[in-house]
């Protein structure tokens, strides 16, 4: 069990980071998820990117709206459970046509062990689509970067809300015997 540390499954966070740099992302807001831990470290270490830890994911939606008002592009990183926290704030992004780039790492999906993750995880895509978010799903590590690149173009060139859902298949499932949990 545990992560399948194939070449591509280790490389994707770095590739994804390069895509964010190439898309001129200047604000990265996040509530941590284990699946995003490497990407968060890369963003924190970058001079040009303001990495902003949030208390709840909806703060990030509002922050990215403000960033866009001030001429900066941002991205919001979250675990699938965080998508549910965002819905009413996304109503503003929909009404105002704020570009939103959301990168969602999945739980409650592939090989999940925590039953409390299932109800939100299994409904992330339809809930986001219900509020008007365009959803790209990716379940191959080698395709994460190209998918986020396409999503960023769509979000910023057409002023739309776009989420990339990164499958738990890519992140690997939790080793129940490990010392550090990933709730």
């Amino acid at each position: 069990m545990g992560n399948k540390n194939t070449q591509s499954s280790v490389a994707w966070p770095g590739e994804l980071f390069q895509v964010l740099k190439g898309a001129n992302i200047r604000q990265v807001a996040y509530v941590p998820d284990a699946g995003h831990s490497r990407l968060i470290e890369l963003c924190q270490a970058d001079q040009q990117i303001k990495a902003v830890p949030l208390t709840t994911e909806e703060e990030g939606v509002a922050q990215l709206a403000g960033a866009w008002l001030g001429g900066e592009r941002g991205a919001l990183l979250m675990q699938s459970s965080g998508a549910g926290n965002c819905i009413n704030m996304l109503a503003m992004a929909s009404e105002c046509r704020f570009p939103m780039l959301m990168l969602v790492t999945m739980r409650g999906e592939w090989g999940e062990f925590n039953p409390w993750q299932i109800p939100m995880g299994q409904n992330v895509q339809r809930v986001l689509e219900a509020i008007g978010v365009i959803v790209h799903q990716v379940d191959e590590a080698a395709r994460v970067a190209e998918t986020v690149n396409a999503a960023a173009r769509l979000a910023f060139d057409t002023s739309r809300m776009v989420a990339v859902i990164i499958s738990q298949r890519i992140i690997g499932f939790k080793d129940w015997n490990a010392t550090q949990g990933t709730p």
């Binding site: 922050q63 960033a67 001429g71």
Partner: peptide
């Protein structure tokens, strides 16, 4: 408040 923060960081 968070709209204000995103804007303040951008400007």
């Amino acid at each position: 408040t968070m709209i204000g923060l995103g804007l303040a960081l951008a400007q």
